[in-house]
Design a protein around this nucleic acid. Structure first.
Lengths: 222, 222
DNA sequence: GGCGTTGTTGTGCAAGTGTATAAATAGCCT
DNA sequence: AGGCTATTTATACACTTGCACAACAACGCC
C-alpha cells in the first residue's frame, strides 16, 4: 500500500515564489542576454531562457507578447548599459578637457567595457541590423550619440589649445577617434590576452593625440 | 476522361541536372552565406539553404557530414575572400611604400570591402567566437595575418623616411592602424550613406599619417 | 541503345520550436 | 483564517528542424 498515503507524491507541482513585475522582467531580460551570449540567437529558445531565469517557459508570454519582443527589449537594455557605461567616464569634473578625453579612452579600453561576453552580444545583434530596420535605427542612434559626445570633448580639447576648427574638421576628428576606440575595443575583446594591461588604452591615447595634433604629454598630468 | 492519358502528371518528379562536385559545394556555400546574411544563423535552415541553391534539402547531407560542417566551411570561405581582397591592394608594384599604404587603406574603405552584407556575415559569425574555439582561432589567425601585413608596410614606410623604429613601436603602430581601419570599416558598413564617397578613406589616410608622424602630402603623388 | 553508377529527389521521423490555454497556488486584503 | 486574484506551472498543439533512407533518373561508358 505505498500508493495511498505517500508522503512524497511524485507528481508534486513545482514550488514557486511571486516576484515583483519589474524584477521578473529584468531577470528574464538578463537570462535572455546570457543565453544569446552563450549559444547565439539560434540557441536562445524560450525554454533555455526560462530555465536560466529559474521559471518555466510559459511565464515568458505572461510578461512579453512574444519571444521577439523579449529579444528587442534585451537588445535595448544591452545598448543602454553600454552607452551609459561609456559616457560615465565623461562626467569627471575638475579635470582639463585633455584629461577627460584620456579618461574617456581609458575607460572604454578596459574592463568592464572590454569584455568578450558584451562583444559577443553586440556582434550577434548588430549582425541582424542589415535585415532588421528596428535594430539598424537603434544602432544608428547609439552611434551618433556616442560620436557627438566625442565631438564635444574634442571641441573642448582643441579650444583649450586655442585652436578653432571648423565643423567639417571637427566631424572628421570625431569619426576618426570613434574608429580608433571601436577598433581597439574589438581587438581587446577578441584577443585581450595578447595585450598587457593598459596597453590598449595607451595606444589609443597616443593615436588620438596624434590625430588631434597634440604634443605628447611630457611628464605626467596637467 | 482527363484522368487516363494526362500529358502532365501532377506527381511529376522534379527535373534536375548533375553538377560537378566543386560547383555544387560552392553553390551550397554561397547559398549558406546568403541565408545567414539575410536571416541570421537562426534562419539558415537546411531547407532555406537548399531552396536558395536550387536543390532539395537532402542533397546537403550528400556533400557535407552535417549542417555544422557546412557552416564551418562557409565561414572559412568568407574569411578567405575577405583577407584575399584586403591583401590584394598591397601587391602594387612600382609604388612608394607610402603610396602602397594609402592604396591599401583606400581599398579597405570602399566597396566591395565596405559592404553591409559582408559585415552582417562577419558580425554574425564572430559573435560566436566567444563560445566556439574553432571560430575564435580562425579569427585570431586572420587578424594576425592582417596585422602582420600592416606592420610590414609600416616598416617600409618608416624606412623610406629614414626612421628606425624598434619592434615595440612597430607593433603599436600596427595595432593602432589596424584599429583605425577596422573602426572606419564598421562605420562605413553600418552607416555608409552618412559619408560621401571617398570620405572614409581620406579620414583613414590622414589618421594613419598622423599616427606615423608623417608630414601631410603637399600637392599630390610621390 | 541499354546499363550501371551515383547525384538527386521525396518522404518519413523524432526532437525541439513558439504559442495557447487550463489548472494550481502564493500572497495580499479584509 | 479564508477567499480573490493574478502569477506561475504544466500540458497540449501545430509547426519546423536536422537527419535517415529508399526510390528515382541523369549521365558516362560499353
Amino acid at each position: 500500500m505505498p500508493d495511498a498515503a505517500d508522503p512524497a507524491p511524485m507528481n508534486a507541482r513545482r514550488k514557486f515564489r511571486r516576484e515583483g513585475e519589474e524584477r521578473r522582467r529584468q531577470d528574464l531580460i538578463d537570462a535572455t542576454l546570457d543565453s544569446v551570449a552563450e549559444h547565439g540567437l539560434e540557441g536562445a529558445t524560450v525554454r533555455t531562457i526560462a530555465l536560466r531565469a529559474g521559471v518555466t517557459a510559459g511565464l515568458i508570454r505572461h510578461y512579453f507578447p512574444g519571444k521577439e519582443d523579449l529579444l528587442q527589449e534585451a537588445y535595448a537594455a544591452l545598448m543602454g548599459r553600454m552607452t551609459e557605461q561609456a559616457k560615465a567616464a565623461l562626467v569627471m569634473e575638475d579635470a582639463s578637457p585633455r584629461q577627460r578625453l584620456a579618461a574617456f579612452v581609458t575607460a572604454n579600453l578596459n574592463a568592464p567595457i572590454i569584455d568578450q561576453r558584451v562583444f559577443s552580444l553586440w556582434a550577434t545583434f548588430i549582425g541582424r541590423a542589415g535585415a532588421d530596420p528596428t535594430l539598424a535605427r537603434a544602432h544608428r542612434e547609439g552611434y551618433l550619440g556616442f560620436r557627438n559626445e566625442v565631438e564635444a570633448v574634442v571641441a573642448e580639447v582643441l579650444a583649450a589649445e586655442r585652436r578653432k576648427p571648423d565643423a567639417a574638421e571637427l566631424r572628421h576628428h570625431a569619426i576618426a577617434i570613434n574608429a580608433i576606440i571601436d577598433g581597439l575595443w574589438i581587438e581587446g575583446c577578441l584577443a585581450g590576452e595578447m595585450f598587457s594591461p593598459g596597453e590598449l588604452a595607451a595606444i589609443g591615447i597616443k593615436a588620438i593625440e596624434a590625430e588631434l595634433g597634440l604634443a605628447p604629454e611630457q611628464g605626467g598630468n596637467q
